[in-house]
């Protein structure tokens, strides 16, 4: 059997999700229901969106350390302006996306390390969020709440949303012309440049799309929590990076997978529920996420070695 490296990269995350899900169902058969599944995966939607955003940045070999504060900021905007005066809210969010595109340009033009620039931006977004909502509050706009609590027939909304996110970003990143060029920048910037493309524009586009998905993450989060605060999504920086890696993405070389990223986000969310079903104290939840990350990475290394040996033979 000959598998492409892309398929191999998807096998491990899909398998780990399946194993985890089977374990959860085994221990808590009631989870195998409409409401059960919705509860299990509800919080995965914003995390999946943030993971996609992080993945877009990683596809051009950069890293965004401000993802958590940025999602918190957009959540605050959603719970305040987007709810009270939608026009201004949309304007602010559009501005935030433009700011992301500008970041992409600055990082490329000045050849700056993305880690430090986004580190600085994380303070800026955090500050803006605190200015908007000094204490927890605000309210979710009605339509957001409606979408996030919708009850489609047969399949709960969290699953439907995850599938839609995975499918649409797969089309955007893996199938479209723009997606190919962006990943090309990550794979071999020099040859893309030699073929006559503008690297600055491609990077700006990648960053803008990342900003767009991060905005969606903030909106979805508020739809679930109904209110926001400035620290609501701080965990998302680390979770989104972990999600991309879990889903088979790599830090360099433009090797990313949107479907994998969504699966990675689902796995991370499920890990928490799994442990609580195992009656392991919630103390170990974060630790388990770390352990899963390490196990998956070790598995992937093992598979890569195997594949290499196969090739050399």
């Amino acid at each position: 059997m000959k598998l492409s490296s892309g398929a191999i990269r998807l096998v491990i995350p899909a398998a780990s999700l399946a194993v985890l899900l089977a374990a959860v169902f085994y221990m808590q058969p009631r989870a195998m229901s409409y409401t059960g599944l919705n509860l299990l995966f509800n919080l995965a939607v914003p995390i999946a969106l943030a993971t996609i955003a992080q993945m877009l940045i990683m596809s051009v070999n950069d890293l965004d350390l401000s993802m958590g504060t940025f999602v918190s900021f957009t959540a605050c905007v959603t719970a305040t302006f987007l709810q009270s005066s939608p026009a201004i809210g949309i304007l602010i969010l559009a501005g935030a996306i433009a700011a992301y595109a500008a970041l992409g340009v600055i990082i490329h033009v000045r050849q700056l390390p993305s880690i430090v620039v986004t580190l600085g931006m994380s303070f800026v977004w955090g500050g803006l969020a605190v200015l908007l909502l000094p204490s927890p509050g605000g309210a979710a706009p009605g339509w957001v709440r409606w979408i996030m609590t919708a009850k489609p027939p047969l399949v709960p909304v969290a699953i439907v949303a995850s599938v839609i996110i995975a499918a649409s970003t797969h089309l955007l990143v893996m199938r479209s012309s723009l997606g190919v060029l962006i990943r090309g920048v990550g794979g071999n910037q020099r040859s893309v440049e030699r073929a006559g493309w503008s690297i600055v524009w491609l990077r700006a586009a990648a960053y803008a799309m990342a900003g767009f998905f991060a905005v969606l993450a903030g909106i979805a989060l508020v739809g679930l929590t109904t209110s926001a605060d400035a620290n609501i999504a701080l965990r998302y920086t680390l979770l989104s990076i972990a999600g991309v890696i879990l889903g088979g993405g790599e830090f360099v070389g433009g090797r990313v997978s949107p479907i994998g990223a969504v699966i990675g986000a689902l796995t991370l969310t499920l890990a928490g529920s799994f442990l609580s079903f195992m009656r392991i104290s919630p103390d170990w939840q974060i630790g388990a996420q770390g352990a899963i990350l390490i196990v998956v990475l070790a598995l992937r290394l093992f598979l890569n070695r195997l594949e290499k040996r196969e090739k050399n033979r």
Partner: peptide
Amino acid sequence: FGAGVRLILTGLIIIAVILAAGGRKA
């Protein structure tokens, strides 16, 4: 000033420093 302004200033300082340092390198 509150915590918000403080954070924003901190961030802007970091970015300004890295921009200045990057310029030297160029």
